[in-house]
Design a protein around this nucleic acid. Structure first.
Length: 459
RNA sequence: GGCGGGUUGGCGGAGAGGUUACGCAGCGGAUUGCAAAUCCGUGAAGGCGGGUUCGAUUCCCGCACCCGCCUCCA
């Protein structure tokens, strides 16, 4: 059974047929590297990483090219660099910008690695492709799809008849909505910026239209073309990018004569405790915040996979706790087990059905229930779970000393009939999140949900 | 105002036009010094109103409510 994917462009689930099965190509919009990634930024990363893993499983690791960009041209980055300069840093602005984006990319890699996301094969930075952007913009002007005015270059939206199709809007409706930036240099209020001038306090590159910098949308069109060719298989990103970002990408690329992406995929947004994440509500946090709070990356990942990517997902502490318990249980079951040579057919089938990760996890639960631990392990790993690299958090601390102590107390209590000392130690262990198993055969201690090693130190 | 999505049992969350989702929690039992864990068993659903159908939670229409995007926040 082949892969079927919901294509945002056609609003239908379609059989996935790669243009070239020996080189399946996927482009995903990556982060603007101005600060730590928040928890919402992580959802597309995990979603498309899971798709990447599925594609590699089906077509072979060497036959999938995954590109995810870093947007390192951005006013927020500029603002940070300018702030550092204002604070007395004597280095040139470009150096400060480079420093800021370098450190942010480092954070991003560390945080996404912790979620078990494979690094894409290519991670281009926008600033390394300015030449391609300039060339593409020049081509659009030559073709009558864009125009230069007052140092700006604007895309002429009316020159692309299909504009609005991806997001289901018409240009006229959008203008009626009157939420568009009106600028004197625009022929039409919907026209968007391909290139804009930079003053001395902003990073800029020489171009036929003067020193300036690219608008946001052109980078993806130019980099996708450069790295994946005029036509490729899948383009992904968060639903919030569907309009205007992806709409504009399509307009630019198609007017430049590129076939561009065949399948568009958008993940729905993430909420926190039932509400849109926002700084004002106080429910805003980064991936790093969670990791530092002791929520393992693997737990974050499985929580994400518990909801289909096409539906809004709610991040809650309750879900994280349940997920942690599930992972501890599974890790216990597969300890010392070699993975089966192939993942369970039911899991692959679920993932192949538009990335039904929740269904795939249900199959894993079923495998655990019937004792097929090798199948469970192989299947979980296709989804980036139960891998060795991610298991550090669940690896046991040595509890044998405490187990022996409890066992001794218990034997004594059985003789004396005074179980108070046993119960006292047991309560303390439970309070530290340790699972206490006492049977006829002896005592067994396991880290459980909410395990906190620091609480054991006093014991 | 325009566009899009959602509404499933106590909670989370899938698939399927008719047969048990699954997980967590609950309940009963086994087990236990008491528990935990484990095992066995078990109750519980499909926003509202129409329509199609032998039969709809699943398809179609309408309504209500919720959410998102339209503001270079994924």
């Amino acid at each position: 059974m082949g892969i079927r994917l919901h294509n945002s462009a056609t609003r239908a689930k379609e059989d996935f047929v790669p243009i070239d099965a020996s080189n399946v190509r996927m482009y995903v919009c990556g982060p603007t590297v101005y600060d730590r990634a928040h928890i919402g930024n992580a959802r597309p990363v995990v979603v498309f990483d899971t798709l990447y893993r599925l594609l590699r499983h089906v077509y072979g690791e060497a036959h999938v090219t995954y590109v995810r960009n870093f947007t390192d041209v951005d006013d927020k980055i500029n603002a940070t660099a300018q702030a550092r300069k204002a604070a007395g840093d004597a280095r040139p602005l470009e150096a400060l910008i480079r420093e800021r984006t370098e450190e942010t990319i480092g954070w991003y890699h560390a945080d996404m690695d912790a979620l078990g996301a494979l690094r894409p094969k290519i991670e281009p930075r926008a600033t390394d492709y300015i030449g391609q952007m300039v060339a593409m913009i020049a081509g659009l002007i030559a073709g009558g799809h864009a125009y230069a005015k007052e140092g700006h270059v604007l895309f002429r939206v009316r020159s692309y008849a299909e504009y609005g199709r991806l997001s289901g809007r018409s240009v006229d409706d959008m203008i009626a909505g009157a939420r568009v930036e009106v600028a004197p240099f625009k022929e039409d209020p919907m026209d968007f910026v391909l290139w804009k001038p930079s003053d001395a306090d902003l990073p800029g590159w020489e171009s036929p239209w003067g020193r300036g910098r690219p608008g946001w949308h052109i980078e993806c069109s130019a980099m996708a073309h450069e790295l994946l060719g005029a036509e490729f298989d899948i383009h992904g990103g968060g639903l919030d990018l569907q309009f205007p970002h992806h709409e504009n990408e399509i307009a630019q690329s198609c007017c430049a004569g590129h076939g561009f992406a065949r399948v568009w995929m958008h993940n729905e947004m993430l909420q926190v405790e039932g509400k849109k994440m926002s700084k004002s509500l106080g429910n805003f946090f980064t991936v790093r915040d969670l990791l530092e709070k002791g929520v393992p990356g693997e737990v974050i990942r499985i929580v994400f996979l518990g909801t289909h990517y096409g539906k809004p997902m709610d991040w809650t502490a309750e879900k994280a706790a349940q997920a942690e318990a599930t992972l501890r249980k599974w890790r216990g079951l597969v300890a010392g087990i070699d993975p089966a040579p192939t993942p369970l057919p039911g899991v692959v089938a679920a993932l192949s059905d538009d990335l039904n990760t929740a269904g795939a996890l249900a199959e894993c639960h079923a495998a655990a229930g019937r004792g097929d631990y090798a199948g469970l392990l192989a299947s979980a790993r296709v989804m980036g779970l139960l891998t060795e690299e991610m298991g550090e958090w669940a690896r046991g601390v040595d509890l044998s000393g405490l187990a022996a102590k409890l066992s001794t107390l218990r034997e004594a209590a059985k003789a004396s009939k005074d179980f108070a000392p046993v119960d006292a130690l047991k309560s303390a262990l439970l309070a530290a999140g340790v699972e206490v198993r006492m049977s006829k055969d002896g005592v067994e201690l396991m880290p459980g949900a909410g395990f906190d090693a620091t609480k054991l130190e006093a014991l």
